[in-house]
Simulated assay, not measured.
Amino acid sequence: MSQQLHPAAPHHPPFFVPGADGADPMLVVMGILLIATVFWVGTLYWKLHSLPERMAHKSQKLQFEIVAVLGLISLFTHMHIFWVAGLLLAMIDLPDFGTPMRSIADSVERIADATPEAPALAPETEPAPAGYSDVRTPTKRGGHGHV
Score class of each variant (00 low, 15 high):
127 P>D: 11
51 L>V: 11
55 M>F: 08
129 P>K: 02
68 A>E: 08
26 M>Y: 10
87 L>N: 05
4 Q>H: 05
11 H>D: 02
144 H>A: 14
117 E>I: 12
53 E>K: 07
137 T>I: 13
46 W>Q: 11
121 L>Q: 03
109 E>K: 15
134 D>T: 13
130 A>D: 14
2 S>E: 10
134 D>H: 10
93 D>H: 14
126 E>Y: 00
107 S>A: 15
111 I>N: 09
102 R>P: 00
121 L>K: 04
129 P>R: 02
59 S>T: 09
54 R>P: 01
32 I>Q: 02
27 L>I: 09
6 H>M: 01
33 L>T: 12
72 L>S: 07
112 A>E: 06
36 A>Q: 03
17 V>P: 00
8 A>E: 14
118 A>Y: 05
137 T>A: 08
102 R>W: 01
9 A>T: 02
30 M>S: 13
6 H>Q: 03
50 S>G: 14
116 P>D: 12
81 I>C: 01
3 Q>K: 05
87 L>C: 04
55 M>K: 11
121 L>W: 00
95 P>L: 08
20 A>E: 12
108 V>C: 00
122 A>R: 11
77 T>K: 03
20 A>T: 12
103 S>R: 13
7 P>H: 14
138 P>Y: 07
24 D>W: 08
131 G>D: 12
97 F>D: 09
68 A>S: 14
78 H>K: 06
39 F>S: 07
135 V>S: 12
17 V>T: 13
20 A>H: 09
147 V>F: 03
101 M>F: 10
18 P>Y: 06
82 F>E: 05
60 Q>W: 09
105 A>I: 09
48 L>K: 09
28 V>Y: 02
92 I>Y: 09
44 L>F: 07
19 G>T: 07
6 H>D: 11
64 F>R: 15
127 P>K: 09
45 Y>Q: 10
83 W>A: 11
16 F>D: 15
82 F>N: 06
144 H>D: 13
56 A>G: 06
65 E>Y: 15
56 A>C: 03
110 R>M: 10
127 P>F: 04
124 E>A: 12
138 P>G: 11
62 L>V: 15
46 W>H: 06
68 A>Y: 04
41 V>S: 06
84 V>N: 01
106 D>K: 11
59 S>P: 00
35 I>S: 10
4 Q>C: 01
37 T>R: 01
19 G>L: 00
96 D>Y: 05
60 Q>A: 14
